[in-house]
């Protein structure tokens, strides 16, 4: 029971309380870059969840079996292994499920350079998560990223048809929206304080 509770806490913490985008500022490039439309934001989020899960597994394998004696190679091996794994998975999906490949589209390769992915691997290492905890952490982080992307896209679509002052139209406005969203997500911190 306590194990399960621990997992629920990891999930909730990664998805809403310490949301990767809004609290840790990870993955900001897609957050400001592709949130112009709702459906692309959702697809990017799903592709992110997928890659995060793979990354978490790859990082666990590296940490447990390979990097035990050479921790100073951690960063270099992480980035090389993650980039090539994602590339490999991309090829596999293209072969096995063209429909899924089309749905994810250009976003799959782009995600490789997303700092949220490397961030996940590093946080997982520094917190000493095992395999199951790591996967739950990855799922939570992915859900959190998707949530932030979709909400952001929804609000930005609205601001396009409304009278935003010319001076802050575009990037500056996106930062203000992100600030308010981040403020709102801070409220989730109260979720577990009584426990």
């Amino acid at each position: 029971m306590s194990d399960f509770g621990e997992l629920v806490f990891i999930f909730a913490s990664a998805s809403v309380i310490n949301n990767f985008t809004l609290a840790y500022f990870l993955g900001l490039c897609p957050f400001f870059g592709v949130t112009g439309r709702l459906d692309t934001a959702l697809r990017l989020g799903l592709a992110n969840i997928f890659v995060l899960l793979i990354t978490s597994f790859a990082a666990w394998v590296l940490n447990t079996f390979i990097l035990v004696n050479a921790p100073y190679l951690r960063l270099i091996s992480f980035i090389v292994v993650i980039a090539s794994t994602v590339q490999f998975v991309e090829m596999a999906i293209k072969k096995l499920s063209p429909a899924l490949f089309r749905a994810l589209g250009i976003f799959l390769p782009l995600i490789t350079t997303n700092c949220a992915i490397l961030g996940l691997a590093l946080f997982q290492t520094s917190r000493g998560y095992g395999l199951v905890e790591g996967l739950v952490f990855a799922l939570g982080a992915g859900v959190g990223l998707t949530l932030a992307l979709v909400i952001m896209a929804g609000i930005r679509v609205e601001t396009e048809v409304n009278g935003v002052p010319e001076l802050v139209r575009g990037t500056a406005m996106s930062f203000f929206i992100a600030g308010v969203l981040s403020l709102a997500f801070m409220g989730f911190a109260g979720l577990f304080s009584s426990a």
């Binding site: 500022f25 500056a172 406005m173 930062f175 203000f176």
Partner: peptide
């Protein structure tokens, strides 16, 4: 207190970008 928390980062960046847009204009 908000300025040293995450939302402060977004808000200050937004203000700075708006100032840059104003200077540019």
């Amino acid at each position: 207190a908000i300025m040293i928390l995450p939302p402060g980062g977004f808000l200050s960046m937004g203000v700075i970008l708006a100032v840059f847009a104003y200077l540019e204009k």
